[in-house]
Design a protein around this nucleic acid. Structure first.
Lengths: 223, 223
DNA sequence: ACTATCATGATAGCATTACTATCATAATCA
DNA sequence: TGATTATGATAGTAATGCTATCATGATAGT
């Protein structure tokens, strides 16, 4: 894959199509990861890339839309990776194991997109993505389809769960819990060690065994 | 109980001790529930209660601290209710059932605190509380103890889980998942119906059976 | 090669937000 | 009664989140 096309038009002008656009995205990822979304401003962004506020506004209506774009990009990218990874797996249990493993392990940089630092982008997802949901505009944003990459991702997992146990009635909830809570557990491990049992020495494998056990126990016990 | 004392000093002056303080808290709950935290300002709050911005600033350093106060109040209040409710239950399984039930069902107004609308306050918890964690200042805030009411709550549940299955190694993670995700599932049910299997006709009981099954399947299956 | 257009830069400005500071006055407490 | 304290009234300031206008340099079509 050499292109992640974000279908959701949260931009005024496609940043993937111009040099300036790429610089905007690249520097946004870096600055939001560094400063946090609250302190990130278009003024700072423009200064960073040696451009102007006005130019940034030609690509994105505001910083909220820019964040929506980054998140949609992330889930589109991850979905594509995941499909490649699980395409040839027939057994749904094995497939779900693979999915959980994929979600728990830290991302690696993708050489196809040299202007985006995927590791910083994932930090942004863990730290900031939930904020884009919890706004008074969430229903409008959803209607515009800004979250559809994220929803597609959840539906993919949900379907896999359903083929493991067609009688389990809460696959959507279980899948959304998985996605949301992996981010939360990663966050808690770093910032709230007292409410996490993950070992610093094998965080990734603990995280994976926590969720693996949780999901499969749930899917396999009768309701 | 006639008083919820928020130990965490996220205030400059205790709002529970003055008439103006009570008006500040009461109107904050109402305004944040109505406008969302982003659009809520001390100027609007002051106008609402017929006071001034300067006066509000004498109670709280900023609106972030005020939100921390409301959240600490909520968890202190809920913890107190929960302990009363489960105090006489000896069997940990029965106790955890009760806890899950308590968490899933919507709150009721508490006549002990006439200046706070607990129903609006819970809406705030569902919609806004996660934002107080996901900031660059989270480590400072945690060190100041602003989240300790929340952590106490989680530890209480975690201990109950531990007595059900002392060999299960992720009680903290499971308990924090439960608290976090109940809020998220409530939120998703309202705003992302396509990723929720909860029936509009029996949302509360579906929510409860989803989590009940999830938690007990996990605790009872060997790891 | 010539012109039209388009993308970007440069600059200005404005309303709102998030505070801080100062002074006056009313309540209350010793 | 006098001192302290709580609140109100008012002003001001820096930063944020935009919008608008004009100039310029690149590019594309004829």
């Amino acid at each position: 894959m050499t292109n992640v096309s974000v279908k959701e038009q949260c931009y005024l002008k496609n940043p993937a199509e111009t040099k300036l656009g790429e610089r905007i995205i690249g520097a946004s990822v870096q600055l939001i990861a560094e400063l946090g979304f609250e302190r990130f401003t278009f003024k700072r962004l423009a200064a960073q890339i040696g451009s102007t506020e006005a130019s940034v506004y030609r690509y994105f209506e505001n910083k909220h839309k820019l964040l929506l774009y980054l998140i949609a990009w992330y889930w589109t990218w991850r979905f594509h990776q995941l499909k490649m990874l699980t395409d040839d797996i027939k057994d749904p249990t094995e497939k779900l194991e693979k999915i959980i493993h994929f979600l728990c392990k830290p991302v690696e940089v993708d050489s196809n997109f040299d202007y985006i630092n995927e590791i910083e982008l994932q930090e942004i997802i863990v730290a900031e993505s939930i904020k884009t949901l919890h706004t008074k505009e969430v229903d409008d944003d959803r209607k515009h389809g800004y979250f559809s990459a994220f929803k597609d991702f959840i539906h993919f997992i949900s379907e896999c769960m359903n083929s493991i146990n067609p009688n389990y009635p809460y696959c959507h909830n279980l899948a959304s819990m998985l996605i949301d809570n992996i981010q939360e557990q990663k966050f808690n491990f770093v910032h709230f060690a007292t409410i996490s049992n993950l070992s610093p020495k094998k965080t990734e494998s603990d995280l994976q065994s926590f969720f693996s056990h949780l999901i499969f126990s749930t899917l396999k016990s009768s309701i």
